[in-house]
Simulated assay, not measured.
Amino acid sequence: MNLAYPLILGSKSPRRKEILEKAGFQFTAEAKDTEETYPSDLPLKEVAAFLAEKKAKAFLADKKYADKIILTADTTVLIDNQLLEKPQDAIEAFAMLKKLSGRKHQVVSGFCLLHKGEIIKFSDETIVHFSTMEDEIIHEYIKNHQPFDKAGAYGIQEGIGLTHIDKLEGSYFTVMGLPIHLVYKALRALK
């Protein structure tokens, strides 16, 4: 899709980059380091969009982005009214995957568009159903895929994401990290 302004993907995620490329967008990727903190009283389903907005605001101060469209995103995993963030180590990753094993959970991907100083944010939710995973399968996945940059300690496009997800209620790409169907509509609406 041709846009009236250059598109910047404000993310280091290779998955988000891949989704945008496959959707046919021309863009450059340029992330700003942002502390991924949020208010403790923020409803958990709003955290992803809040963090996406925070990442977009990091571009506001630099005038070189004034005539560009900035797209930022964040993904969260929720189970038992608890947020599973990026695991710090293999022990934490194992505990997260053990909790997800044989159960369903929510993945919320939020994204934000910054254009001409205006910020618009969206989020999308998908319910993911995991089959039961044996301990050895979890350990092998962590060893082979090092899922320390992924909320909930897994990627839908690799390993146990491919072999142990029984069903999705919602968008595959929301789980991967960017609800491209909503991104497309939001970008088309920009003037």
Rank of each mutant, 00 (worst) to 15 (best):
K17G: 02
K17Y: 01
L20Y: 02
L20E: 01
L20V: 08
K22E: 04
A23K: 00
A23I: 02
A23F: 08
F25W: 13
Q26M: 02
T28S: 11
T28P: 06
T28H: 03
A29N: 03
D33C: 01
T34F: 05
E35H: 03
E36S: 09
E36C: 08
T37A: 10
Y38F: 15
P39Q: 07
P39R: 13
S40Q: 15
S40L: 05
P43R: 07
P43K: 07
L44N: 05
E46K: 11
V47Y: 10
V47M: 07
V47R: 02
V47I: 15
A48G: 08
A48R: 07
A49K: 09
A52V: 10
A52K: 14
A52F: 14
A52R: 13
A52D: 05
K54G: 02
K54D: 03
A56I: 13
A56D: 08
K57P: 06
K57T: 02
F59T: 04
L60F: 13
L60R: 12
K63Q: 12
K63R: 14
K63Y: 04
K64C: 11
K64V: 11
Y65K: 04
Y65E: 04
K68P: 01
L71P: 00
T72P: 01
T72A: 04
T72D: 00
D74S: 07
D74R: 09
D74I: 00
D74W: 03
T75I: 05
T75D: 01
T76I: 15
T76R: 14
L78Q: 10
L78W: 15
L78P: 15
I79A: 01
N81L: 06
Q82M: 13
L84P: 13
E85T: 10
K86R: 07
P87F: 04
D89K: 14
D89Q: 12
I91D: 07
I91F: 07
E92T: 10
F94V: 10
A95V: 08
A95N: 10
M96C: 03
L97G: 15
K98F: 15
K99T: 14
S101I: 14
R103L: 01
K104W: 09
H105W: 11
Q106D: 13
Q106W: 13
V108Q: 01
S109F: 13
F111G: 01
C112V: 05
C112K: 05
C112Y: 06
C112H: 00
L113H: 04
L114T: 12
H115I: 07
H115K: 12
H115L: 08
G117Y: 09
G117M: 07
E118A: 11
I120R: 15
K121C: 11
S123A: 11
S123M: 13
S123V: 13
D124C: 05
D124M: 06
E125W: 00
E125R: 04
T126K: 10
H129R: 12
F130C: 07
F130P: 05
S131E: 15
S131I: 08
T132M: 01
T132L: 12
M133I: 14
M133W: 08
E134F: 02
E136T: 04
